[in-house]
Design a protein around this nucleic acid. Structure first.
Ligand SMILES: Nc1nc2c(ncn2[C@H]2C[C@H](O)[C@@H](COP(=O)(O)OP(=O)(O)OP(=O)(O)O)O2)c(=O)[nH]1
Ligand SMILES: [Mg+2]
Ligand SMILES: [Mg+2]
Ligand SMILES: [Zn+2]
Length: 572
DNA sequence: GCCGTTTTCGGCCCGACTGTTTTCAGTCG
């Protein structure tokens, strides 16, 4: 997919235009770049179908540049701009605090073209002598270079959310703090997180800010003000704090939750109504009287919109639907009745069936499903048919012992390279639920992989397709396949798609969930726990389902035990 | 460069913090 490459080009054009003080075009290029980054569909496909100008922020001119890049691998406009300002601009701008305007000055005055140039100049004290720069700026640039060189990646949601909750608890322990809430991409439950955003309401802002910037784990303070502070923790994570008054809580949380494009759209709606929206509230332009701000619900309502759940605030059509009151009620965090994928000591898990069942029961589940690995998974201690039969007996026994929770005997069965399954039908029919996965041969070409998966899904016992794309966030790309065809095959054969809640997988991801739903799919959400502790990951999977616009009805394991059998072939 | 239940021209989100400035531009959220 060339989406990201083209986004990068648009960002670079935007920066070069901004250097020349061109008005508005930089925002236009950046808006289009964000659209490209946020979409899951291949831009080449969109272009092929003549739908480029349907993309938000893409008009005739940018559609032309996208086509140009797809055809020639170049965008002339960028090459032209680069003639005026050569050098490694996109690298330079990754230094925090250095934007297009000052980068241009550095190039004009002392020919800075790269990070290495920049570092040398700063160390030699040549930057402080430039008009508009100074000693502090020079130091900040060096620190910025150091940070850039650390090359910090975006955090997994599974890392960021617990960390954010800890900080929130800490802030809540102060008696001056009325409310402390997580904002930003964590509140929207994005799969990866750039920084930790926290909102506090209080009547004593300076006290809170002082406390925040002097916490023991603070490495650096980027900024400290009355309503906004920003720090770097020793663990390398950035935390932004906004401090506002209690009666501004709603508008402040709305602002700080974002995303950026969602905010801009809301603010434009306000403008059209003769209003103004900011973190301080919704105001009448004339007279500046405040008409909302205490709660988010109030802000959306006064703008003429249905309330929008944070997970949907991605500028992916939610605002248009909210204007028409047409956003569906998405699945809730309490709607799950059981967990349908987990591993035990029988393969590569660390707990016994009984231990998993006791833990699940205490979480209020009505049922769980054991899905230990099939025989080809030698490194994961996959089970030979004989051992599988004993495993099933063990599950029946554990179920009698634990009582009060149904334990399904299932397995995570490999779809082998030729598309056959890792157990014969004679074995598969002994399981309550059959789930299948791709665990090897990831490098297969698209056609073959699609064929392989589809033949696996057509087996008459198969119920669930696990972690359907096989990706590991930041570590392994999804395997190549024709997603539409796979989903269509799943739908036709009544195979449910798993939303794997494991934070490094989150597979299916949000945009593909939404797409699969449009294609008629239904889903299970499961943790793939390899220990009792792993069962807690369910909230991440539910978050993805919400971001994929799923309702309770779309997810099979929201059903009670009684309703469940009709969704699984061997249980019918 | 994009876009449209007040517009196909004339708007384009709004505000905080910092350093180097005598009043604000640049950068970031
Ligand atoms: N109105 C407005 N709000 C913004 C803008 N930039 C950021 N925000 C708001 C919405 C964001 O969700 C929130 C936090 O900003 P961040 O830069 O931390 O972005 P976010 O948390 O969404 O993503 P991240 O994972 O941190 O990259 O602040 C902006 O340019 N305008
Ligand atoms: Mg953030
Ligand atoms: Mg932030
Ligand atoms: Zn697996």
């Amino acid at each position: 997919m060339k989406n990201a490459e083209i986004a990068k080009i648009f960002y670079e054009i935007a920066d070069l235009l901004e250097m020349q003080a061109v008005q508005f075009k930089p925002q236009a290029y950046r808006k289009a770049a964000r659209t490209l980054e946020g979409m899951s569909e291949d831009i080449e496909k969109v272009s092929g179908e003549g739908r480029l100008t349907e993309l938000a922020g893409v008009g005739e001119a940018l559609a032309g540049k996208i086509q140009e890049y797809l055809k020639t691998g170049k965008v002339k406009h960028l090459d032209e701009l680069k003639k005026k300002i050569p050098g490694n601009l996109d690298e330079l701008l990754k230094v925090q605090g250095l934007g297009p305007k000052r980068a241009l000055v550095l190039y004009d005055k002392i020919k800075i073209e790269s990070i290495d140039d920049l570092e040398k100049a700063a160390r030699q004290g040549r930057i402080r002598r430039i008009e508009g720069f100074g000693e502090k700026t020079e130091q900040d640039i060096l620190k910025g270079i150091e940070m850039y060189r650390l090359g910090t990646k975006r955090m997994l949601l599974g890392v960021a959310l617990p960390l954010a909750r800890e900080i929130v608890e800490k802030l809540k322990s102060l008696k001056e703090v009325k409310r402390a809430e997580i904002g930003g991409s964590i509140r929207r439950r994005a799969e990866t997180i750039g920084d930790i955003d926290i909102l506090v309401t209080t009547s004593n802002p300076s006290k809170i800010s002082k406390f925040f910037v002097s916490m023991p784990e603070v490495e650096r303070v980027f900024a400290e003000g009355d309503t906004k502070s920003s720090i770097l923790l020793r663990n390398g994570k950035q935390v932004d704090l906004r401090v506002l008054k209690e009666d501004e809580f709603g508008s402040a949380l709305q602002y700080f939750t974002g995303n950026k494009d969602h905010n801009i759209k809301l603010r434009n709606i306000a403008i059209k109504k003769g209003l103004k929206l900011s973190e301080y509230g919704l105001f009448r332009k004339a007279g500046s009287k405040r008409i909302a701000g205490r709660s988010e619900e109030e802000v959306y309502k006064k703008l003429g919109l249905q309330y929008i759940e944070p997970e949907l605030r991605e500028d992916q059509g939610e605002i248009d639907l909210a204007l028409k009151n047409k956003i569906p009620k998405i699945i809730g965090y309490g709607d799950i009745k059981g967990d349908l994928q987990m591993h035990t000591k029988n393969s590569d898990g660390v707990n016994t069936v009984k231990e998993m069942a006791v833990a699940a029961k205490s979480m209020g589940y009505e049922y769980i499903s054991m899905t230990d690995h099939s025989q080809s998974e030698k490194i994961a201690n996959g089970m030979e048919p004989e051992r599988l039969l004993k495993y099933i007996q063990g599950i029946r026994k554990a179920e009698k012992e634990v009582k009060g929770i149904r334990i399904f005997a299932s397995a995570e069965v490999d779809i082998k390279s030729d598309g056959s399954l890792d157990y014969s039908d004679d074995i598969l029919k002994k399981l309550d639920i059959v789930t299948v996965s791709i665990h090897s041969g990831f490098k297969m070409e698209k056609e073959k992989m699609t064929q392989r998966i589809c033949s696996g899904l057509q087996n008459k016992h198969v119920d669930i397709f696990n972690h359907p794309t096989g990706r590991y966030i930041n570590r392994r790309e999804p395997y190549e396949m024709d997603f539409e065809k796979v989903v269509q095959t799943a739908v036709k054969n009544k195979v449910h798609l798993e939303i794997n809640s494991s934070p490094e997988r989150l597979d299916l991801k949000d945009s593909l969930i939404r797409k699969a739903k449009e294609l008629g799919a239904d889903f299970t959400i499961s943790t793939d726990a390899h220990s009792v502790d792993g069962l807690k990951a369910m909230e991440y999977g539910i978050a993805m389902a919400r971001r994929g616009w799923l309702t309770k009805k779309d997810v099979i394991n929201t059903r009670s035990l009684k309703e469940l059998p009709k969704y699984f072939k061997n249980l019918k």
